[in-house]
């Protein structure tokens, strides 16, 4: 079948700028962004909780938007910019969200946390969450089996309120 088509499953060149650093990769078409991060680049901060888009643990920012990296084929995003949990802080200085998670104890085992942080960063960027209910709904793509939800919501609200001037 394949012989008659102009396709090949050989590795494809893909350029990705991850946390500010350009990576020029050659990857099989089937490689997910999550596996690029973990298996190819050893960036283990992004977690695999389900590998099927059902938990949010693998959430990263792709060109600034939050995505589940486990259902994202990297080949399809040549030249994209990716931010993972490793790229949120500035040097030793935690981002406002990271700091709020620390203060509000918005985590327990920490396994969902990289995904929660990237998702929350995306949520702030999107600008559609203005109420507690909206934060809860728009963070529902990130499961936390430790049940830290009320603290996660509080932490995000605290950043939402301190970053955006109330009229």
């Amino acid at each position: 079948m394949l012989e008659t088509l102009p396709y090949s499953n050989a590795p494809v060149p893909v350029d990705l700028t991850i946390n500010g650093q350009l990576h020029q990769l050659a990857i099989e078409p089937r490689t997910t962004l999550l596996d690029v991060l973990r298996e190819h680049l050893g960036l283990m901060g992004t977690k695999k909780g389900c590998d099927h888009g059902q938990c949010g643990a693998c959430t990263v920012l792709l060109n600034g938007e939050r995505r589940v990296s486990c259902l994202t084929l990297a080949v399809s995003h040549d030249e994209a910019t990716v931010t993972t949990v490793e790229g949120l802080a500035t040097g030793d200085e935690l981002s406002p969200l990271q700091q709020a998670f620390l203060e509000y104890d918005a985590y327990q085992c920490g396994y969902c946390t990289p995904g929660q942080l990237c998702s929350a960063q995306g949520l702030l960027h999107e600008g559609h969450a203005r109420t507690r209910d909206e934060v809860r709904e728009l963070m529902s793509g990130n499961l936390c089996r430790c049940g830290a939800y009320p603290h996660i919501t509080d932490a995000i609200l605290s950043v939402l309120l301190t970053q955006q001037p109330t009229p």
Binding site: L2, Y7, D51, V68, L71, T72, L73
Partner: peptide
């Protein structure tokens, strides 16, 4: 890819090629 990649992983779909 949110549906297709999921199905590829479960091997429910096994196409020879993807056309992006």
């Amino acid at each position: 890819g949110t549906n297709l990649v999921d199905l590829l992983k479960y091997r429910v779909e096994q196409p020879a090629a993807l056309l992006d």
